[in-house]
Amino acid sequence: MAATSSQNAITLKGSTEIVSEFFWYGINSILYQRGIYPPEDFTRVQQYGLTLLVSSDDALKNYLNEVLSHVKKWLLSMTVKKLVVVIKDIDTNEVMERWQFDVECDKTVLEESKPREKSVKDINKEICSVIRQITASVTFLPLLESACAFDLLVYTDKDVEVPSSWGEDGPHFIANSEEVRLRSFSTSIHKLDTMVAYKKTD
């Protein structure tokens, strides 16, 4: 009984873990699907009942870990609002795509407060459908013809201290964009809405 109850209870810390894990796999999937990094750099990993591709590039891994560690902190303090994967053309510096993950935090929950009731299985199911949609979105997104790189933007509260080696930046809007809302999932503490905006092709 104890085991099952612990599996169905979500604490703030656990929710943060789930969300950051989702970020890790989601960003990796986007990078693979959109061809930002060569496909031979990715290795297969079983997660959420899916075979996902995760980069084995050390530099990229370090970068993602660095960013996600800060994001985790902000998730715990509930100061993060959005995480955006911006895909830009290297040559023209034009924003081609914006993958936006809106984070809605239940601010009533504190670190010591009672865990919420939601089974990890259900959450994983929801995450699975989101990642499936990310994978499927390749069908309608325009082909990225030029060499592109990505950047991670984190929307935080105004009063958050900017860590060293981080900087403030613009939102990197797409001038002429089309938006598609994808599925969302909730850990009952953090609710994540996924959407993608991409440059309209003429």
Partner: peptide, 24 residues
């Protein structure tokens, strides 16, 4: 959806050594 935000309440942060900057 386009990623607009209230600049009075939020700010956009990014890791300065991001892949785009590196690539550029």
């Amino acid at each position: 959806l386009q990623g607009d935000f209230d600049p009075t309440k939020t700010k956009v942060l990014h890791f300065s050594m991001n892949p785009v900057a590196l690539a550029q």
